[in-house]
Computed example of a mutant assay.
Amino acid sequence: MHHYQHRLAALVFALAAALPLTAPAAPAALDSARITALESAIASQDIKQITSVLLLVDGRVAYEGYFNGGTAETLNDVRSASKSVTAMLVGAAIGDGSLPGVQARVYDYFPAFTAGHSVDPRLRAMTVEDLLTMSTLWECDDENAFSAGNEERMYVTEHWLDFALSLPVKGFAPWMTRPEDSPHGRAHAYCTANSFVLGAVVEQATKRPLADYAAQVLERPLGITASRWNRSPEGIGMGGGGTRYRSRDLARLGELVLAEGRWQGRQLIPSRYVRAMVSAQATAGDGSDYGYQWWGLKLPVDGHETTVWTMSGNGGNYVFVMPEKKLVAVITSQAYNRSYAHPQSRRILTEFLLPALR
């Protein structure tokens, strides 16, 4: 272990007492050989471009490491992991009465648009839950470069909201699975425009800019004092990606989900909503479960394929939440658009952090 890593390890245990996230128990004892192996893999570039690894067990910091220029103060661009935060804001808006529930109809929040555009009745029936589960009838698929709603097409337009609300109804070619034949009755297609419109709905419902509402209902109550939200060209908060948080603050978001929305005696998000958010609501193309903008990944845990709920973003950015182990793991990474990004971050959890707990 390098000298600076020794000093960091000492600092971590000194700081652990200063970060009362939930329980006051002592930090979990880890198998130092597994941690040394992880740090060696990062140092040797066997695992590339990782900037932080943070493990909380029972609300306490069990491990914290920063690499490749990352620090405790770095505002990490977690890309699409932002979508999971937007889903949490939807829950908060339902909890405070700003939104009536996940069955609220999307187009009802944009009367200026509907006044000037004819909207297909099937789209008029679209709900917030359709956006949350990435199963709208918009022809929108970020994984298909030919899709009308592909995110790259949205980014080069001036009015993202009009772009999304004007998308055509998707057709189902003979080889495509129709909603009624799909798991959970939802034909899932990953579409960042869904998450952007979700943020726009929250702005309309709460009459607050997305970043301001996030600060009010999530960040300030959790003690998060630094973050950065992007906005679209027309000034709407970008709920679909690019939000920046410090690693410890990402852990706080994970801890809130672990505690079913309750923090220091306050219910920030309704527990029923949090449970739905991290339950299978649709099935993604890779076989993962998909909740409300949260991924249920099938990962090897203790020798068995296990569903692990997580925030996930381009580059290999993750916040893993495992209630059965009282565990939150944060991995930040800058391996943007690299094929190894997601596999190696998942490997950090399954091959290093979880075995270190034994």
Score class of each variant (00 low, 15 high):
Gln334Gly: 07
Ala145Ser: 14
Phe163Asn: 05
Met311Gly: 06
Tyr63Val: 01
Thr127Asn: 11
Lys298Tyr: 04
Ala148Asp: 01
Phe13Cys: 12
Lys170Cys: 11
Gly97Ala: 04
Met1Lys: 09
Ala189Pro: 07
Val78Lys: 01
Ser232Pro: 08
Leu30Arg: 10
Asn337Thr: 06
Leu123Gln: 00
Lys326Ile: 08
Ser147Cys: 10
Ala81Thr: 09
Gly287Asp: 11
Asp289Gln: 13
Leu15Gln: 05
Ala92His: 00
Ser32Asp: 15
His117Arg: 10
Ser182Lys: 09
Thr36Gln: 14
Gln5Ala: 04
Ser182Asp: 08
Ala205Phe: 03
Leu54Ala: 00
Asp31Tyr: 12
Gln344Leu: 08
Ser44Phe: 01
Val278Lys: 13
Leu21Met: 13
Phe67Val: 08
Ser339Asn: 04
Val319Asn: 00
Trp175Met: 09
Met1Tyr: 05
Val85Tyr: 08
Glu219Ala: 15
Ser182Phe: 09
Thr114Val: 10
Ile47Thr: 07
Glu219Val: 11
Thr350Leu: 07
Thr350Met: 07
Ile348Asp: 00
Trp229Met: 03
Leu258Arg: 10
Gly287Gln: 06
Met322Ile: 15
Phe172Ala: 07
His342Trp: 07
Leu132Lys: 13
Leu222Gln: 09
Met154Asn: 03
Pro20Ala: 08
Cys140Glu: 14
Asp212Gln: 12
Asp141Trp: 08
Asp58His: 13
Pro270Ala: 08
Pro343Leu: 09
Gly116Asn: 14
Tyr66His: 12
Trp295Leu: 15
Gly185Met: 06
Val330Arg: 00
Met154Phe: 10
Val128Phe: 04
Ala87Pro: 13
Pro100Asp: 02
Ala72Tyr: 00
Thr310Gln: 10
Asp46Trp: 00
Ala173Phe: 10
Gln45Trp: 05
Trp309Phe: 05
Arg228Asn: 15
Gln103Glu: 15
Gln264Tyr: 05
Tyr273Glu: 04
Tyr63Phe: 05
Asp31Ile: 05
Met88Glu: 09
Ala205Trp: 02
Ser52Val: 02
Ala335Asn: 15
Arg244Met: 12
Glu39Arg: 12
Ala37Leu: 03
Pro270His: 00
Arg7Leu: 14
Ser166Tyr: 05
Asp212Leu: 12
Ala18Val: 05
Leu54Met: 02
Pro168His: 01
Val119Leu: 14
Gly303Lys: 04
Tyr190Asp: 10
Trp295Val: 15
Leu297Cys: 10
His342Leu: 03
Ala189Lys: 12
Val119Met: 07
Arg186Gln: 12
Gly239Asp: 02
Gly303Phe: 05
Gly303Trp: 09
Ala93Gly: 12
Leu54Gly: 06
Leu161Ile: 11
Pro355Ser: 07
Ala164Asp: 12
Arg7Met: 14
Thr350Lys: 03
Ile331Ala: 01
Ala284Trp: 10
